[in-house]
């Protein structure tokens, strides 16, 4: 039942001729025309160390989480907004768009279908950006260790800064994890975006190994 990779390209992404509103026909190749297909580059911090430290302090104080729950662990993130846990007092906020967020929390198991979306979301975020793997599913598959459609080891596909163990981790554990992430950021060690850029071909090869219907450019901003 092996299929040709072009089989997976959706019709709207196929190269085709389009007639514009002014009656002129022109050719479009969506994968080339609609996306900016440039690989990420390593970004260096500010020239002065003191400035970079200052930026790192601000980054640690203002963690904007992308509101993207990839699995059941997302249910443990919601209580963080409630009066009982109130993550806002630690400078943690949720943003609905990938452009504005700088922390992607992979909350629980990640099926290959969701992995594709998670990669797109991650690549749309701006450097510096952080990834936190939440729960044992992201570490070694957890209870989905023999599942046919969930990945077992998140750091093969995305540069993970921190794992929070548990199945599920309690909101307190999440808060503790975010505090540890802040320490990493302040120490300047949370450079996942640069690791991703450096090992870009390795990450892409791993991603393409599990995502069989790769119908997007290699890098989508």
């Amino acid at each position: 039942m092996k299929r040709d990779p072009m089989h997976f390209i959706k019709p709207e992404l196929m190269p085709r001729k389009v007639k514009g509103p002014d009656g002129v026909e022109f050719e479009v190749e969506p994968l080339r025309d609609y996306f900016c297909d440039a690989p990420p580059t390593v970004q260096h911090g500010a020239y002065l160390k003191i400035v970079e430290d200052f930026f790192n302090w601000a980054r640690a104080q203002s963690l904007w989480i992308l509101g993207f729950g990839t699995g059941c662990g997302a249910i443990e993130m919601r209580p963080l907004m409630t009066p009982r846990f109130d993550a806002y007092r630690y400078g943690i906020q949720w943003r609905p768009t990938a452009r504005q967020a700088n922390l992607l929390v992979i909350s629980g198991y990640l099926s290959t279908k969701t992995l594709k979306r998670a990669i797109r979301a991650y690549e749309q975020m701006q450097n510096p950006k952080y990834v936190v793997g939440l729960g044992s599913c992201t570490i070694n598959g957890g209870m989905y260790w023999d599942s046919y459609n969930t990945i077992k080891c998140l750091d093969q596909y995305l540069p993970v800064d921190l794992y929070i163990t548990g199945c599920m981790p309690r909101p307190e554990a999440l808060l503790q994890g975010f505090e540890d992430l802040k320490k990493l950021i302040r120490a300047g060690q949370a450079e996942g975006a640069n690791r991703y850029a450096e090992n870009f071909t390795w990450y892409k090869a791993n991603q393409k190994q599990v995502i069989h219907d790769w119908d997007m450019p290699d890098y989508n901003w």
Binding site: F55, A58, T82, P83
Partner: peptide, 20 residues
């Protein structure tokens, strides 16, 4: 809730200016 720290807006602003 306790809400954000009073300097939160400064941190957000600096962080956003500091994105690479």
């Amino acid at each position: 809730r306790h809400g954000v720290p009073i300097w939160q807006n400064y941190a957000d602003l600096i962080k956003n200016y500091g994105l690479r």
